[in-house]
Simulated assay, not measured.
Amino acid sequence: MSIRRDLSNATWRKSSYSNGDGGACVEVADNVPGAVPVRDSKVPDGPALVIPATGWGAFVAAVRSGAFPSR
């Protein structure tokens, strides 16, 4: 199921983990109530994943705890 959200007023910020040479650039918007939109900064007019805020919080907590080790 797909639900469309108006993200025209979203304030995007690049992840601190994105590299600076134009590679893996992820942006998130923090000002969308109850959700966290995520997009590829290289394609700002492309699609965004909109994740429930509770799910995003659980994901960030898992990353910080080392549940997804880097290679």
Rank of each mutant, 00 (worst) to 15 (best):
A10D: 08
M1I: 01
L49I: 06
D40Y: 14
V26C: 13
Y17P: 04
V32H: 14
S18V: 01
R64D: 12
I3P: 04
N31F: 10
V28P: 06
A48L: 01
L49G: 05
A58M: 02
V50M: 05
T11G: 11
A35H: 07
R71V: 13
D6N: 08
N19L: 10
D6R: 02
P44A: 05
A35F: 12
V38F: 00
P37C: 07
V28C: 10
S65T: 05
A48T: 08
K14W: 00
G23F: 05
P37E: 11
T11P: 00
W56V: 01
S18G: 11
P44F: 01
A29F: 08
E27V: 05
T11F: 02
S70I: 02
P47D: 12
R13A: 14
V50K: 01
K42W: 03
M1T: 03
V26H: 01
R13D: 13
S16C: 10
Y17W: 15
A53K: 13
V36C: 11
A48E: 10
C25Q: 13
T54F: 09
Y17A: 15
G34W: 05
D21V: 11
K14F: 01
V60D: 06
R5M: 15
V36T: 13
R39Q: 14
D30V: 09
G46V: 03
R39H: 14
S15F: 00
L7R: 07
K14Q: 15
D40S: 10
L7A: 05
W56T: 00
A35C: 14
A35G: 10
G34R: 04
E27Y: 06
A48N: 09
G46N: 10
G57T: 06
G55L: 08
P47G: 15
A67L: 04
M1F: 03
G23E: 14
A35D: 12
F59Y: 05
A61N: 08
P52M: 04
D45C: 10
A35W: 12
G46C: 12
K42Y: 03
P33Q: 11
S2H: 04
S2C: 05
N19Q: 14
A58I: 01
G34E: 08
G22C: 03
V38W: 06
A67R: 06
S8V: 05
P52K: 01
F68D: 09
D45I: 06
A53F: 02
S15N: 09
I3L: 15
A24D: 15
S18C: 14
A29V: 14
A62I: 02
R4F: 00
L7D: 10
A53Q: 12
R5A: 11
P69M: 03
A10P: 03
T11N: 13
G22E: 12
N9F: 03
R39S: 13
A10H: 04
S15Q: 07
P37V: 02
V36F: 14
T11Q: 14
A48R: 06
R71M: 11
V32D: 14
F68C: 07
R5S: 11
V38A: 11
V36W: 02
N19I: 06
D30F: 00
P33L: 00
S18A: 13
E27W: 04
R5K: 09
P44C: 04
S70P: 01
I3F: 03
S65L: 04
R39M: 13
D6V: 06
A10W: 01
D30R: 12
S16Y: 02
D40E: 14
R13W: 02
